[in-house]
Protein backbone atom coordinates (compact mmCIF):
# COMPACT_ATOMS: atom_id res chain seq x y z
CA UNK A 1 0.00 0.00 0.00
CA UNK A 2 1.39 3.36 -0.97
CA UNK A 3 2.02 6.17 1.50
CA UNK A 4 -0.25 8.78 -0.07
CA UNK A 5 -3.00 7.74 -2.44
CA UNK A 6 -5.25 10.00 -4.46
CA UNK A 7 -8.10 7.63 -5.19
CA UNK A 8 -10.26 8.33 -8.25
CA UNK A 9 -10.88 11.94 -7.35
CA UNK A 10 -13.56 13.88 -9.21
CA UNK A 11 -14.29 17.54 -8.63
CA UNK A 12 -17.31 19.39 -9.95
CA UNK A 13 -17.85 23.07 -9.30
CA UNK A 14 -21.45 24.10 -9.69
CA UNK A 15 -22.45 27.67 -10.29
CA UNK A 16 -26.22 27.79 -10.14
CA UNK A 17 -27.54 25.39 -12.74
CA UNK A 18 -24.22 25.16 -14.56
CA UNK A 19 -21.84 22.50 -13.33
CA UNK A 20 -18.23 22.25 -14.51
CA UNK A 21 -16.33 19.05 -13.98
CA UNK A 22 -12.80 20.21 -13.31
CA UNK A 23 -11.12 16.96 -12.37
CA UNK A 24 -12.09 13.49 -13.48
CA UNK A 25 -10.79 10.21 -12.14
CA UNK A 26 -7.45 11.50 -10.88
CA UNK A 27 -5.60 8.51 -9.52
CA UNK A 28 -2.10 8.70 -8.10
CA UNK A 29 0.09 6.90 -5.59
CA UNK A 30 3.05 8.55 -3.91
CA UNK A 31 5.70 6.61 -2.00
CA UNK A 32 7.19 7.80 1.25
CA UNK A 33 10.06 10.24 0.75
CA UNK A 34 9.20 10.78 -2.89
CA UNK A 35 9.25 14.22 -4.50
CA UNK A 36 6.37 14.40 -6.94
CA UNK A 37 5.61 17.36 -9.18
CA UNK A 38 2.30 17.97 -10.85
CA UNK A 39 2.63 19.96 -14.03
CA UNK A 40 0.00 21.26 -16.42
CA UNK A 41 -1.21 24.36 -18.17
CA UNK A 42 -2.85 27.03 -16.06
CA UNK A 43 -6.50 26.36 -15.36
CA UNK A 44 -6.13 22.58 -15.61
CA UNK A 45 -7.13 22.12 -11.99
CA UNK A 46 -3.76 21.22 -10.50
CA UNK A 47 -4.18 23.71 -7.65
CA UNK A 48 -7.65 22.31 -7.02
CA UNK A 49 -6.08 18.86 -6.78
CA UNK A 50 -3.55 20.11 -4.23
CA UNK A 51 -6.31 21.79 -2.23
CA UNK A 52 -8.24 18.50 -2.20
CA UNK A 53 -5.17 16.68 -0.85
CA UNK A 54 -4.77 19.46 1.74
CA UNK A 55 -8.43 19.07 2.68
CA UNK A 56 -9.19 22.72 1.94
CA UNK A 57 -11.54 21.70 -0.89
CA UNK A 58 -13.78 18.66 -0.72
CA UNK A 59 -13.65 16.09 -3.53
CA UNK A 60 -16.96 15.45 -5.30
CA UNK A 61 -16.12 11.76 -5.58
CA UNK A 62 -13.19 9.61 -4.55
CA UNK A 63 -10.86 10.48 -1.71
CA UNK A 64 -7.40 10.84 -0.25
CA UNK A 65 -5.74 8.10 1.78
CA UNK A 66 -2.66 8.95 3.83
CA UNK A 67 -0.93 6.10 5.65
CA UNK A 68 -4.04 3.91 5.40
CA UNK A 69 -6.34 6.60 6.79
CA UNK A 70 -8.78 8.60 4.75
CA UNK A 71 -8.30 12.36 5.18
CA UNK A 72 -10.94 14.89 4.17
CA UNK A 73 -10.33 17.85 6.49
CA UNK A 74 -7.25 20.10 6.60
CA UNK A 75 -4.55 19.28 9.10
CA UNK A 76 -0.90 19.86 9.93
CA UNK A 77 0.00 16.36 8.65
CA UNK A 78 -0.43 17.87 5.16
CA UNK A 79 1.25 21.26 5.60
CA UNK A 80 0.85 23.64 2.69
CA UNK A 81 3.33 26.22 1.40
CA UNK A 82 1.06 28.67 -0.39
CA UNK A 83 2.05 30.45 -3.56
CA UNK A 84 1.66 33.87 -1.97
CA UNK A 85 3.37 32.77 1.27
CA UNK A 86 0.28 33.57 3.41
CA UNK A 87 2.27 34.76 6.39
CA UNK A 88 0.27 36.66 8.97
CA UNK A 89 1.45 40.26 8.52
CA UNK A 90 0.92 41.28 12.15
CA UNK A 91 3.27 38.59 13.46
CA UNK A 92 7.05 38.54 13.24
CA UNK A 93 8.87 35.85 11.29
CA UNK A 94 9.51 33.99 14.55
CA UNK A 95 5.90 34.30 15.73
CA UNK A 96 4.54 33.06 12.40
CA UNK A 97 6.49 29.83 12.80
CA UNK A 98 5.91 29.71 16.56
CA UNK A 99 2.13 29.90 16.05
CA UNK A 100 2.28 26.66 14.07
CA UNK A 101 4.70 25.02 16.51
CA UNK A 102 2.58 25.99 19.52
CA UNK A 103 -0.55 24.62 17.93
CA UNK A 104 0.87 21.37 16.58
CA UNK A 105 3.04 20.50 19.58
CA UNK A 106 0.79 21.78 22.37
CA UNK A 107 1.11 19.27 25.20
CA UNK A 108 3.82 17.30 23.38
CA UNK A 109 6.73 19.69 23.80
CA UNK A 110 7.57 22.04 26.66
CA UNK A 111 7.77 25.80 26.18
CA UNK A 112 11.55 25.68 25.87
CA UNK A 113 11.40 22.78 23.44
CA UNK A 114 8.88 24.63 21.29
CA UNK A 115 11.19 27.64 21.20
CA UNK A 116 14.14 25.44 20.22
CA UNK A 117 12.08 23.71 17.56
CA UNK A 118 10.97 27.08 16.10
CA UNK A 119 14.59 28.23 16.00
CA UNK A 120 15.73 24.92 14.43
CA UNK A 121 13.30 25.36 11.58
CA UNK A 122 14.17 29.01 11.06
CA UNK A 123 17.80 27.92 10.95
CA UNK A 124 17.00 25.33 8.27
CA UNK A 125 15.90 28.14 5.95
CA UNK A 126 18.55 30.58 7.21
CA UNK A 127 16.09 33.06 8.64
CA UNK A 128 17.47 33.38 12.17
CA UNK A 129 18.94 36.82 11.49
CA UNK A 130 15.56 38.22 10.39
CA UNK A 131 13.46 36.41 12.98
CA UNK A 132 12.13 39.59 14.58
CA UNK A 133 11.16 41.26 11.32
CA UNK A 134 7.61 41.44 10.08
CA UNK A 135 6.67 39.96 6.69
CA UNK A 136 6.39 43.43 5.15
CA UNK A 137 10.04 44.08 6.00
CA UNK A 138 11.55 41.10 4.18
CA UNK A 139 11.89 40.16 0.50
CA UNK A 140 9.61 37.80 -1.43
CA UNK A 141 12.15 34.98 -1.36
CA UNK A 142 12.60 35.36 2.39
CA UNK A 143 8.83 35.27 2.92
CA UNK A 144 8.61 32.05 0.98
CA UNK A 145 11.44 30.59 3.08
CA UNK A 146 9.52 31.46 6.24
CA UNK A 147 6.46 29.81 4.70
CA UNK A 148 8.55 26.68 4.11
CA UNK A 149 9.92 26.80 7.69
CA UNK A 150 6.38 27.11 9.02
CA UNK A 151 5.27 24.08 7.01
CA UNK A 152 8.34 22.01 7.94
CA UNK A 153 7.92 22.89 11.62
CA UNK A 154 4.61 21.02 11.61
CA UNK A 155 6.52 17.80 10.82
CA UNK A 156 4.04 16.98 8.09
CA UNK A 157 3.68 13.53 6.58
CA UNK A 158 3.32 15.21 3.21
CA UNK A 159 4.59 18.67 2.32
CA UNK A 160 2.33 20.35 -0.22
CA UNK A 161 3.91 23.11 -2.29
CA UNK A 162 1.50 25.21 -4.36
CA UNK A 163 3.68 26.86 -7.03
CA UNK A 164 6.03 27.94 -4.25
CA UNK A 165 8.47 29.74 -6.53
CA UNK A 166 5.91 31.20 -8.95
CA UNK A 167 5.98 34.74 -7.62
CA UNK A 168 9.78 35.03 -7.41
CA UNK A 169 12.35 36.38 -9.84
CA UNK A 170 14.51 33.86 -11.69
CA UNK A 171 17.65 34.20 -9.55
CA UNK A 172 15.81 33.99 -6.23
CA UNK A 173 13.84 31.06 -7.61
CA UNK A 174 16.97 29.08 -8.49
CA UNK A 175 18.45 29.79 -5.07
CA UNK A 176 15.29 28.65 -3.29
CA UNK A 177 15.00 25.53 -5.48
CA UNK A 178 18.49 24.53 -4.38
CA UNK A 179 17.51 25.08 -0.76
CA UNK A 180 14.39 22.97 -1.10
CA UNK A 181 16.45 20.20 -2.71
CA UNK A 182 18.91 20.34 0.18
CA UNK A 183 16.07 20.23 2.73
CA UNK A 184 14.45 17.29 0.98
CA UNK A 185 17.79 15.49 1.05
CA UNK A 186 18.33 16.12 4.78
CA UNK A 187 14.80 15.56 6.02
CA UNK A 188 13.50 13.02 3.49
CA UNK A 189 10.01 14.54 3.36
CA UNK A 190 7.34 13.31 1.04
CA UNK A 191 6.62 16.28 -1.21
CA UNK A 192 3.88 17.10 -3.68
CA UNK A 193 4.57 20.24 -5.68
CA UNK A 194 2.42 22.09 -8.18
CA UNK A 195 4.37 23.84 -10.92
CA UNK A 196 4.12 25.05 -14.48
CA UNK A 197 7.87 25.25 -14.96
CA UNK A 198 9.34 22.31 -16.86
CA UNK A 199 12.93 22.79 -15.69
CA UNK A 200 11.84 23.11 -12.10
CA UNK A 201 9.83 19.89 -12.32
CA UNK A 202 12.70 17.89 -13.82
CA UNK A 203 15.33 19.34 -11.49
CA UNK A 204 13.45 18.72 -8.24
CA UNK A 205 11.28 15.67 -8.79
CA UNK A 206 11.58 11.93 -8.56
CA UNK A 207 8.39 11.72 -10.55
CA UNK A 208 6.55 14.16 -12.77
CA UNK A 209 2.80 13.90 -13.14
CA UNK A 210 1.50 15.59 -16.29
CA UNK A 211 -2.09 16.71 -16.35
CA UNK A 212 -4.29 17.08 -19.40
CA UNK A 213 -6.14 20.31 -20.04
CA UNK A 214 -9.39 20.99 -18.27
CA UNK A 215 -12.29 20.74 -18.02
CA UNK A 216 -12.38 17.06 -17.03
CA UNK A 217 -8.64 17.19 -16.48
CA UNK A 218 -6.91 14.01 -15.46
CA UNK A 219 -3.42 12.56 -15.31
CA UNK A 220 -2.17 12.19 -18.86
CA UNK A 221 1.22 10.65 -18.21
CA UNK A 222 3.75 10.15 -15.43
CA UNK A 223 7.48 10.22 -15.85
CA UNK A 224 10.13 8.91 -13.48
CA UNK A 225 13.19 11.12 -13.33
CA UNK A 226 16.08 8.71 -12.88
CA UNK A 227 18.70 11.28 -12.01
CA UNK A 228 20.97 10.64 -9.03
CA UNK A 229 20.89 13.05 -6.09
CA UNK A 230 22.34 15.44 -5.11
CA UNK A 231 21.61 17.17 -8.34
CA UNK A 232 23.53 20.12 -9.65
CA UNK A 233 21.74 22.40 -12.06
CA UNK A 234 24.91 23.30 -13.95
CA UNK A 235 25.96 19.70 -14.55
CA UNK A 236 22.43 18.67 -15.45
CA UNK A 237 22.19 21.29 -18.16
CA UNK A 238 24.04 18.93 -20.50
CA UNK A 239 23.02 15.59 -18.96
CA UNK A 240 21.31 13.34 -21.55
CA UNK A 241 18.81 11.91 -19.02
CA UNK A 242 17.86 15.42 -17.92
CA UNK A 243 17.45 16.60 -21.48
CA UNK A 244 15.37 13.57 -22.39
CA UNK A 245 13.03 14.09 -19.39
CA UNK A 246 12.72 17.74 -20.28
CA UNK A 247 11.95 16.88 -23.90
CA UNK A 248 9.23 14.43 -22.90
CA UNK A 249 7.48 16.88 -20.59
CA UNK A 250 7.69 19.63 -23.20
CA UNK A 251 6.35 17.26 -25.81
CA UNK A 252 3.41 16.36 -23.61
CA UNK A 253 2.62 19.96 -22.80
CA UNK A 254 3.12 21.57 -26.18
CA UNK A 255 2.48 18.85 -28.77
CA UNK A 256 -0.18 16.60 -27.36
CA UNK A 257 -1.95 18.86 -24.91
CA UNK A 258 -1.11 22.34 -26.06
CA UNK A 259 -2.78 25.12 -24.20
CA UNK A 260 -6.10 26.22 -25.64
CA UNK A 261 -7.18 29.72 -24.78
CA UNK A 262 -10.61 29.59 -23.20
CA UNK A 263 -13.23 30.98 -25.55
Amino acid sequence: MSYLRIDHVDKTFSNGARATKVLEAVDLSVEKGQYVSIIGHSGCGKSTLLNIVAGLVAASAGGIVLENHQVDTPGPDRAVVFQNHSLLPWLTVYDNVRLAVDKVFAGKKSRAERHDWTMRNLELVQMIAAKDKRPSEISGGMKQRVGIARALAMEPKVLLLDEPFGALDALTRAHLQDQVMALHRTLGNTVMMITHDVDEAVLLSDRIVMMTNGPRATIGETLDVALPRPRNRLELASDPVYLECRRRVLQFLYERHHYVEAA
Binding site: L56, A79, V80, A100, V104, M154
Partner: peptide, 21 residues
Protein backbone atom coordinates in the same frame (compact mmCIF):
# COMPACT_ATOMS: atom_id res chain seq x y z
CA UNK B 1 -9.02 33.36 2.31
CA UNK B 2 -5.26 32.77 2.74
CA UNK B 3 -5.48 33.41 6.48
CA UNK B 4 -8.51 31.15 6.73
CA UNK B 5 -6.55 28.43 4.93
CA UNK B 6 -3.64 28.82 7.33
CA UNK B 7 -6.04 28.55 10.26
CA UNK B 8 -7.62 25.45 8.72
CA UNK B 9 -4.28 23.70 8.16
CA UNK B 10 -3.26 24.49 11.75
CA UNK B 11 -6.70 23.37 12.97
CA UNK B 12 -7.18 26.52 15.06
CA UNK B 13 -10.36 26.27 17.12
CA UNK B 14 -12.98 29.04 17.14
CA UNK B 15 -11.45 30.76 20.12
CA UNK B 16 -7.92 30.72 18.68
CA UNK B 17 -9.23 31.81 15.29
CA UNK B 18 -10.99 34.76 16.94
CA UNK B 19 -7.92 36.01 18.83
CA UNK B 20 -5.11 35.09 16.47
CA UNK B 21 -6.60 35.68 13.03
Amino acid sequence: QDYRNVAAVLRLNHFEFFWKI
